[in-house]
């Protein structure tokens, strides 16, 4: 029942056209005020954390002391740790919420505004449009993570000293090595968001209301985070998309501890596969009446 995609003759389709559509999609998404506000909030979090830590150390208190996000205690000694702290602080809620909003809105928002029917009669093709939407949300995962990381790096460099650092395992690594690991961690965090992205995109195929899809997806993020708190749900917890999120910290071990990291990435791939297929099955057969 694949509908709009079974072109039965080779018209003059331009091979690079999909890239043009992706570019248009990215520009359209990034020029929405909602997207810019989300990125702005994400950029502000590391600044707030950095400033708070700075003020507290001025007062002579030892920062952190066990409470707060991972690596918080190390920030005063080395600004680079602010990158890890900021990602640890935003990954549980801010980042997936931003991704949930963008993913939930991706198709439902266009359906609600009516622009979806014009994209489809252009004709963008349902499978292609879904792939382009998927790619755009994935780019947003990376972009939002990089915004947090870059803002943290900048704030850390301005407020704290930079230099060689110590891994969780207690071995010393050079600043360059630390920077590389920070980049790697940002990539892993971005990849960790792909499960939410897939879920959000699937929800987005179910309704013609962008708001409903956004709210549902964000609600699912919160629900998963809450369920993950209950030891009684041990049978289910390893399948929650957020269960292994904090494994990114294992990249700061020496040697790197891969077990949970691979679990995390595998789980994201599973979500992408399952909900990506569901989104495709739904979107390619759906009546577009909005």
């Amino acid at each position: 029942m694949s509908r709009a995609d079974a072109g039965d003759a080779a018209a003059v389709h331009r091979p690079l056209w999909t890239l043009g559509l992706l570019r248009s999609e990215l520009l359209t998404t990034l020029r929405r005020r909602r997207t810019l506000v989300l990125l702005g909030v994400l950029a502000a979090v590391p600044v707030l954390v950095g400033v708070a830590v700075k003020i507290q150390t001025r007062r002579g208190g030892s920062s952190g002391g066990g409470a707060g996000p991972a690596f918080l205690g190390e920030v005063t000694g080395n600004g680079l740790f602010l990158v890890f702290t900021a990602l640890a602080a935003t990954l549980p809620f801010f980042l997936p919420m931003a991704v949930g909003v963008v993913a939930g809105d991706a198709l439902a928002g266009e359906a609600g505004a009516g622009t979806l029917r014009y994209l489809l009669v252009a004709p963008a093709g349902r499978t292609r449009l879904l792939l382009v939407k998927y790619a755009t949300v994935a780019v947003f995962c990376l972009l939002s993570t990089l915004v947090v990381a870059a803002s943290a790096l900048l704030t850390g460099a301005l407020l704290f000293p930079l230099g060689d650092l110590m891994t969780i395992s207690g071995t010393g690594i050079s600043f360059a090595d630390g920077l590389l690991r920070a980049l790697l961690i940002a990539l892993v965090v971005a990849a960790s968001l792909l499960g939410v992205a897939s879920l959000g995109l699937f929800v987005s195929t179910l309704t013609d209301s962008g708001i409903a899809a956004m709210a549902t997806t964000v609600g699912l993020v919160v629900t998963a985070q809450i369920l993950d708190q209950f030891p009684q749900l041990d049978a289910v917890r390893p399948y929650l998309f957020s269960h292994y999120w904090m494994s990114f910290a294992d990249l700061m071990r020496d040697p790197v501890y891969w077990h949970d990291l691979t679990r995390d990435l595998g789980l994201q791939a599973l979500y992408a596969g399952v909900f990506g297929s569901a989104a495709w099955a739904r979107f390619t057969t759906k009546d577009i009446t909005a």
Binding site: A11, H13, R14, W17, S24, Y118, L119, A122, A124
Partner: peptide, 12 residues
């Protein structure tokens, strides 16, 4: 520009 970009046969 966006609607035209959605047409696979439109010349950019």
């Amino acid at each position: 520009l966006r609607y035209d970009a959605a047409d696979p046969t439109a010349d950019p």
